[in-house]
């Protein structure tokens, strides 16, 4: 029993790390752009296919594949800003529909180029850290946890310590006031899209050997991430990280001791309860959204 609890704890930590990466990116995009990016799960999917193309296809190193995934998905984010979200800036519902359109396009492109069957990606290392009997952590999972901690700490430092970070937080707080201070809102929006999309891409690339990679894999991720950012309070990065950890632990433990469907139901009910008590999430400001 003791071992099972410990093992589940490790599994939950791993789940929390990649959920937090995707969720923080989505929150960043929402904060600055004011649109809900429905295609965020597909950015995650693109990151995973970056690994399929570079690591499996071109036989390059895994690290290079992750870097390529990061840059490619960041670039896609930049294009999305220019082509979709900038023209639709004052119209969140249209932005939502446009991102749904993009979601369909990206899924179709992945299906056309790679086929709809699941990709098999050999893990980079078969090594497993053994703590005791029945408690172990594959090294590949440890990579994800470490990367999430490093990236999120880096992002936090960037947002709190640098001038760009200041400007980004200012325009998330109040776009017009930021503009009056001479901040280029467009430049900041581009920055937020690159970082937000890039984080989703990294999460997809790093977890690619651990999950089932297929064109529609973004769906379950986006559902989870929506729950997480709502519970955390839309626009709150700290809230997203805390909610990601909470959700991952609840979901993993309930899955282990009951089953997956019950875990989904419990997660959704908990989220509804949080919203009934605090209609703007745990850390959400009163007048946002």
């Amino acid at each position: 029993m003791h071992e099972l609890l410990l093992q589940t704890f490790l599994n939950a930590t791993y789940a929390a790390s990649y959920i937090a990466l995707v969720a923080v990116g989505l929150v960043l995009i929402f904060g600055v752009m004011g649109v809900i990016n429905f295609a965020h799960g597909e950015l995650y999917m693109l990151g995973a296919y970056g690994v399929v193309a570079v690591y499996v296809g071109a036989q390059q190193s895994f690290l290079l594949a992750v870097a390529v995934g990061l840059m490619f998905v960041g670039l896609v984010g930049l294009l999305m800003e220019r082509a979709l979200f900038r023209p639709l800036r004052d119209n969140p519902l249209s932005g939502l529909v446009a991102s749904i359109g993009l979601l369909l396009i990206l899924q179709a492109l992945a299906a056309i180029f790679f086929g709809v069957r699941m990709e098999h990606i050999p893990p980079v290392t078969q090594e497993v850290l053994r703590f005791s009997d029945g408690v172990s952590l594959p090294l590949q999972r440890l990579f994800v946890i470490v990367a999430a901690i490093v990236l999120l700490t880096g992002l936090w430092m960037f947002l709190k310590r640098t001038r760009f970070g200041w400007a980004l937080r200012a325009s998330a707080e109040d776009r017009e006031a930021a503009q009056l201070q001479g901040i280029s809102v467009t430049r900041i929006a581009q920055l937020a899209m690159v970082i937000g999309a890039g984080l989703a891409g990294v999460a997809g690339a790093l977890t690619a050997p651990l999950v089932r990679v297929y064109p529609y894999m973004g769906h379950s991720v986006i559902v989870t991430v929506f729950i997480v950012i709502i519970v955390g309070g839309v626009g709150s990065l700290e809230g997203a990280v805390i909610a990601a950890i909470a959700y991952a632990f609840v979901h993993t433990f309930v899955t282990t001791f009951f089953d997956g469907v019950v875990a989904d139901i419990v997660g959704l009910l908990l989220m509804l309860m949080v919203l009934v008590v605090r209609p703007t999430g745990l850390f959400g400001a009163r007048d946002r959204a």
């Binding site: 749904i100 359109g101 396009i105």
Partner: peptide, 9 residues
């Protein structure tokens, strides 16, 4: 789906 998505956008 690709055409449908493009049409939505």
């Amino acid at each position: 789906p690709l055409f449908y998505g493009a049409l939505l956008i």
